[in-house]
């Protein structure tokens, strides 16, 4: 099993990370090695086993329906680079 250039491009697209075409072969090679390594899992039969999503089986963590958060717009992490006037975040048009 290996990860082809096409796979790399597809995954990069899904993950929104641009990859230079000249780097794709090396990604393909490294990721194939990692995939082979991950394939060792297939050596064991797990058909009757229930998957385990959380290590400690907690349940029902909830909070009351109360407003607890105040306006955080004035905080230091708001950089000019990320915000427009009127506290709107700056994204990019299609």
């Amino acid at each position: 099993m290996s990860i082809s250039s096409k796979n790399v491009e597809e995954m990069a697209r899904l993950a929104r990370i641009s990859i230079n075409s000249k780097d794709i072969p090396s990604y393909s090679e490294q990721l194939s090695k990692i995939l082979n390594f991950m394939n060792e899992m297939q050596s064991i039969d797990t058909d009757t086993i229930e998957p385990l999503a959380h290590p400690i089986e907690e349940v029902n963590a909830t909070r009351a329906d109360v407003v607890t958060e105040a306006d955080i717009r004035q905080n230091e992490h708001q950089y000019a680079n990320h915000m427009l006037d009127d506290f709107l975040y700056r994204s990019q048009s299609d």
């Binding site: 427009l84 709107l88 975040y89 700056r90 994204s91 990019q92 048009s93 299609d94």
Partner: peptide, 15 residues
């Protein structure tokens, strides 16, 4: 919500 018409060339977002 994306706000498309307030700023030229830029999409603004209100969370």
């Amino acid at each position: 919500k994306s706000v498309h018409d307030e700023y030229a060339d830029v999409t603004a977002v209100d969370f």
